[in-house]
């Protein structure tokens, strides 16, 4: 059954969309990741215009992070003060990101920008994860060295120090603010939550305790992606509510299956599987940039005011 998406203005099979939502939902449930970084490129591959894919994915992430944030609030695993600093940076970053997106859309380069961002990020993260989990599997029997997180780094010499009680930290507000900006820009340009950047940064750069990291990052993600959705809706008219709903329905269903599947697999196996999926998507994007296109021309209908 075909469904006509009102904003994307393409007719797509409804089961393909729900299936895609389910597939990415399974992966996100299995690996505990947001899944935006997989969903957006998959939407390009099935013919959704990149501008619509990015904006709609931001909308979907709002829904998929919602129940997670509530659960973490109940467990008091959200550092609200840190979350707000990250959020202020995030809103600033998202504004800049949507502005850049709009300009590049007008000059016809937005597809290139989004693709290049994906190639860079998926390439780096996929290969890091792949080699790390590969070495973890081969060195399984040897005793693991404890990685020491340095307690006093350059981060602690920065001004504007603030006390974050929940995280038990007294550090400068600049690093979380800057991290927030980076994540905001990525949310606007790539249609991702940015957890894959933010979580490691919170642990290794800010030095937050792991138990509050996920809740605090979800708190930032839900507001930044909501803001990004509104910005894309008002600046680029590219949020497809119908597409978002179909992906959400599939995603919710898939996540439940994914969580059950994830329990049955070992952590290293899970990570190596995820890294291989990430690298496959990355190679497909690179391949599309390199091969000679069948059609050299592309058409865009000018928006009439």
């Amino acid at each position: 059954m075909q469904v006509y998406l009102p904003i994307a203005e393409v007719s797509v099979n409804i089961f393909l969309l729900i299936g895609l939502g389910t597939l990415v939902g399974i992966l996100s449930g299995m690996f505990g990741v947001g899944g935006g970084f997989l969903m957006t490129p998959l939407l390009f591959f099935i013919g959704i215009p990149p501008a619509v894919a990015v904006a709609t994915e931001a909308n979907q992430i709002v829904a998929s992070s919602f129940s997670g944030v509530l659960a973490h609030f109940k467990r008091r695993a959200v550092d609200l003060k840190m979350g707000i600093v990250l959020l202020i940076g995030g809103l600033l970053g998202a504004s800049v990101g949507v502005y850049v997106f709009k300009i590049l859309k007008e000059i016809g380069q937005v597809e290139l920008l989004v693709t290049l961002c994906y190639v860079v990020f998926l390439g780096i993260i996929g290969s890091l994860m792949f080699f790390e989990s590969l070495s973890a599997i081969t060195k399984q029997n040897r005793p693991q060295k404890n990685i020491k997180i340095k307690r006093h780094t350059w981060v602690h010499r920065l001004p504007l120090k603030m006390r974050f009680r929940t995280s038990n930290l007294y550090i400068s507000a600049i690093p979380p603010f800057v991290i927030g900006i980076v994540v905001g820009v990525l949310a606007a340009i790539m249609g991702v939550g940015g957890g894959f950047i933010m979580v490691p940064a919170m642990i290794y750069i800010i030095g937050m305790p792991t138990k509050v990291v996920i809740g605090t990052s979800l708190f930032q993600i839900i507001f930044v992606t909501a803001f990004t959705t509104i910005m894309h809706a008002t600046q680029n008219y590219s949020v497809d509510a119908l597409l978002a709903i179909l992906l959400i329905l599939g995603g919710v269903f898939g996540a439940q299956i994914g969580v059950r599947l994830g329990v049955k697999l070992k952590a290293e196996q899970l990570r190596i599987l995820l890294s291989m999926i990430v690298l496959c998507v990355c190679f497909k994007l690179v391949f599309d940039l390199l091969i000679t296109p069948d059609e050299y021309y592309s058409i865009m209908v000018d928006i009439q005011k």
Binding site: P6, N59, A63, A233, Y237, I248
Partner: peptide
């Protein structure tokens, strides 16, 4: 709505997404 009331549409899309996500789960 997306073209004539984009701000309302954006906010509406968020609540619609939340409703469907929460409802489905």
């Amino acid at each position: 709505t997306a073209h004539e009331e984009p701000l309302f549409y954006g906010i509406f899309s968020i609540f619609l997404a939340l409703f469907f996500g929460w409802g489905a789960s």
